[in-house]
Design a protein around this nucleic acid. Structure first.
Lengths: 112, 112
DNA sequence: TATATTTATTCTACAAAACAGAATAAATGG
DNA sequence: CCATTTATTCTGTTTTGTAGAATAAATATA
């Protein structure tokens, strides 16, 4: 029984943010990136819950940052997408596009 | 506080199927269309639950079909996307694309 | 060196979405 | 009538999505 599941909508958004941020991806920067790109106001709790689930599933990997805070404050936990995670994004991407491609409501979004 | 929510991943898939099927959209044909396009094996229960939820939110509208079954069997319940529903697809589409556009895992899906 | 401040993550709880399988319904051919 | 066919509804569970309070760790400073 091969991999049968697809990523959820928010999971996709979160992984997208990780991919864009690269090295810089941690809690606050992820929240900001999502807000910048989608106008979505994500709470910390919501984000970490999703991040932890994705980690448990092996789609993202985490590591603690150096204690190099410039101004005070707790250490950061950085995240990156795994190869598995990337594959899942592709799977979901394909499914979504196969279903939506050519539909006006979808295309319009694509070029906005 | 205007409309702040986005469609779920499966909701998007289902509405996509409705848009493609047009007049022909009802339980079984929707399940088949989703399978054809995404390889996803959707159970009747899962589909109707989603359809009903979307109806409650005003994103799809339903009407019973004529009693014109060719071979026996219960009447069909046909579904169509509302203007509101179409707008929601667009909203989700924009958000998703803003976040994913340009990422290899997303683009690859688009042209597959 | 206490403690206020800053930055960030974890915890707790709950609502919504996704999903399966059994039950039920309605139609018709025999 | 009753078996068969086609389709929807019901019931229950798991997974995702979400917020807000609590907690943690670091540093500046009184």
């Amino acid at each position: 029984m091969p991999n049968e599941k697809f990523l959820g909508e928010f999971e996709l958004i979160v992984i997208g943010a990780l991919m864009r941020l690269g090295e810089e991806a941690y809690g606050v920067s992820i929240i900001n990136e999502i807000d910048r790109r989608t106008g979505r106001d994500v709470s910390a709790g919501a984000l970490y819950a999703t991040l932890n689930r994705l980690e448990k599933k092996g789609y993202v990997r985490a590591h603690m940052g150096e204690a190099s805070a410039v101004r005070g404050g707790r250490a950061k936990r950085f995240f990156e997408v795994t190869t598995e995670g990337r594959a899942q994004v592709e799977r979901s991407s394909v499914a979504l596009h196969q279903m939506m491609q050519g539909l006006p409501a979808w295309i319009k979004g694509a070029q906005a």
